[in-house]
């Protein structure tokens, strides 16, 4: 790879680069080896009992139980169903917000801006608690509602930026054809803004998916709550690390897949019109 930041490496620079590469690799390998060694070492609990290291079979032997897999499945379903519904609602809310925010009437635009700033400034965790306690809607809708509101606000802003970045001629052409202002927005500007902002919107959906884990505050049964919290409680803390590894693996698998989709979408230029 060449970069404007440095010259094409000569023999001396290449040697230096190789030396640093080898050193980095050694450091990484040493860190991993240290971690594995720490994990493999037997440990004593506070009560003085001796437990085997984390690679011992007794740390992992719960995965032959059907109940464990059913619980994990329930957690994954909890996360995905909340994220799915929240994503749809967030998109719808984002579209409405961007339309209101780009309105020509100050009486519409200014209140929307204030609401938007408010939503963007409040932690999602607090919104979940607020919906749960004030609306009394149950954990599921507290999680979905808070995620939809917050991410809808972000998506709305992204869409508005997309509309603003279009050449002015697009809107003028729509209006001069005799379309009303709203129809110009929907038929001419919106489809282009949406395509342009698709990578940002998908990245925001990854954030939404990650944030479902905040549902622990309202005791919503998603992956982290079940696999990270509930299961070690019911099967014993000796499996805590095991369940943590499983949780992180599930999240990484889902999120990396969605991120890869985002990258694919941003590379693939969808032809306009």
């Amino acid at each position: 790879m060449t970069s404007v930041l440095y010259d094409a490496p000569g023999p001396k620079a290449r040697r230096l680069s190789r030396i640093i590469s080898v050193l980095t690799a050694l450091v990484v390998i040493a860190a991993l080896a240290g971690l594995i060694w720490t994990l493999a070492a037997p440990r004593t609990t506070v009560s003085g009992a001796e437990l085997p290291g984390y690679f011992d079979a007794t740390r992992w032997n719960i995965f032959d139980r059907e109940a464990v897999w059913i619980a994990i499945g329930r957690g994954v379903w909890g996360t995905l169903s909340a994220a799915g519904v929240a994503a749809v609602l967030a998109l719808a809310f984002g579209v409405v917000l961007s339309l209101l925010r780009a309105s020509e009437l100050p009486a519409v635009r200014i209140p929307t801006t204030i609401v938007l700033e408010f939503i963007r400034g409040v932690p999602v965790l607090l919104m979940m608690l607020f919906i749960l306690l004030v609306a009394g809607s149950g954990a599921y809708w507290a999680v979905v509602g808070a995620l939809a509101l917050y991410n809808g606000a972000i998506i709305g802003e992204a869409l508005r930026a997309g509309i603003r970045s279009l050449p002015r001629g697009q809107r003028e052409a729509g209006l001069s054809l005799g379309l009303s202002g709203l129809r110009t927005r929907f038929l001419i500007e919106f489809p282009q803004a949406f395509r342009q902002m698709l990578p940002i919107i998908i990245a925001q959906l990854v954030v939404l998916l990650k944030d479902t884990s905040l549902g622990y505050v309202v005791a919503y049964p998603e992956i982290l709550f079940i696999v990270g919290g509930n299961m070690p409680d019911s099967y014993g803390s000796r499996y805590q690390f095991t369940f943590f590894v499983v949780t992180i693996a599930i999240y990484l698998a889902i999120n990396l897949a969605v991120s890869a989709l985002a990258r694919f979408m941003s590379r693939r230029r969808i032809p306009l019109g």
Binding site: K210, S213, L224, G228, T247, I248, Y251, L252, L256, S259
Partner: peptide, 11 residues
């Protein structure tokens, strides 16, 4: 970037 903050904190 693909790990939830709650999980990092839990770790």
């Amino acid at each position: 970037r693909n790990t939830p903050l709650t999980l990092v904190l839990f770790f």
